[in-house]
């Protein structure tokens, strides 16, 4: 495969492990991609990290882990100690376990990523598909809508929506869902424009496939890998945005989230209390890093151009 070196260099993650794709041909896009991804050890590690975070989030959600988080486990501001697993990250101002709060924060972060994706992906896919497929004034309208939404800097739109819907988790879900569909819509539109005149779509039309069937049964499966690539970036953006919004006081109320913990930490640092900041930052760092690298690896593995 002659283009391998240049592709790796271009995507900038050569240092994170290479994939060899010379023997992968013709088993379907997703299976090819999976085979390629399995050879990328760093990507597998990232999938493992994401799965671990998801498992923790799920267990916290079910009440199997880190519950009750608001129990007083020791004195206020106790530094980390190995006396008990509850105090390995120390305690906060009320003597609550920072470790439990970090785990609870994982639940919030993952749920924000998941729910905002569930909102934004259907919007992005449908608008992009309709605009690209039908063209004409429908396309003009779709382009106008997403140009307009993307012209309002994301953070201002997030602040405005979260502020107007009232503070709390639902407002964050909606704000992130409503702002983050644009990039997917843009990609989908471009792909649908490319695919709509290809032979397989023309063939589908000639045997009487309806518009809906051509869009969702014929074209969509062929461009669905962009949704997966986008999902990774979406999760990362959502987690970062939740932290900022919670920090601005527009986010989660009465529950521990990484943003709330970092907000608390700004007054604690000068007293030498670093563990709450460290816990939330490190927890956030690894999951964002994993999504960052995974996004690149998924693009390498799924993008048929560099097959």
């Amino acid at each position: 495969m002659t283009t391998k070196t240049s592709d790796q260099n271009r995507n900038g993650v050569a240092g994170f492990g290479a994939f060899v794709s010379s023997h992968v041909v013709g088993k379907g896009l997703l299976r090819d991609a999976w085979i390629r991804l399995q050879r990328d050890k760093i990507a597998l590690l990232c999938i493992g990290i994401v799965a671990l975070y998801a498992a923790v989030a799920l267990m916290v959600q079910m009440g199997w882990l880190a519950t009750p988080w608001d129990e007083v486990v020791s004195g206020a501001y106790q530094p980390p100690s190995f006396a008990s697993y509850k105090t390995i990250l120390g305690t906060d101002i009320f003597g609550r376990s920072v470790f439990f709060k970090v785990l609870q924060g994982t639940r919030i972060a993952m749920s924000v990523g998941l729910v905002s994706s569930l909102i934004s992906i259907p919007i992005g896919v449908c608008l992009g598909a309709i605009g690209g497929y039908f063209g004409g004034w429908v396309d003009d309208l779709v382009v106008w809508v997403y140009t307009t939404v993307s012209s309002i800097p994301n953070i201002m739109l997030l602040i405005a929506i979260a502020f107007l819907l009232g503070k709390g988790l639902p407002a964050i879900y909606v704000a992130l869902g409503a702002t983050s569909w644009v990039s997917l819509a843009r990609i989908m539109r471009g792909e649908f424009i490319k695919h709509k005149s290809r032979d397989y779509v023309v063939a589908a039309e000639s045997i009487g496939a309806s518009h809906r069937s051509r869009i969702f049964r014929h074209i969509l499966p062929n461009v669905s890998h962009f949704i997966i690539i986008n999902l990774s970036i979406q999760f990362m953006t959502a987690i970062k945005a939740e932290v900022i919004l919670s920090f601005l006081g527009l986010g989660v109320q009465g529950q521990p989230s990484w943003g709330v913990m970092i907000d608390d930490a700004k007054l604690e640092l000068s007293r030498g209390v670093w563990w709450q900041l460290a816990g939330a930052t490190v927890a956030m760092f690894f999951v964002v890093l994993a999504f960052n690298i995974l996004g690149d690896s998924l693009r390498d593995a799924l993008d048929p151009k560099i097959k």
Partner: peptide, 14 residues
């Protein structure tokens, strides 16, 4: 490049 990816993953607040 590795340092950049690590740096991108850290929250601005940190």
């Amino acid at each position: 490049v590795i340092v950049c990816v690590f740096g991108m993953s850290l929250s601005m607040l940190a």
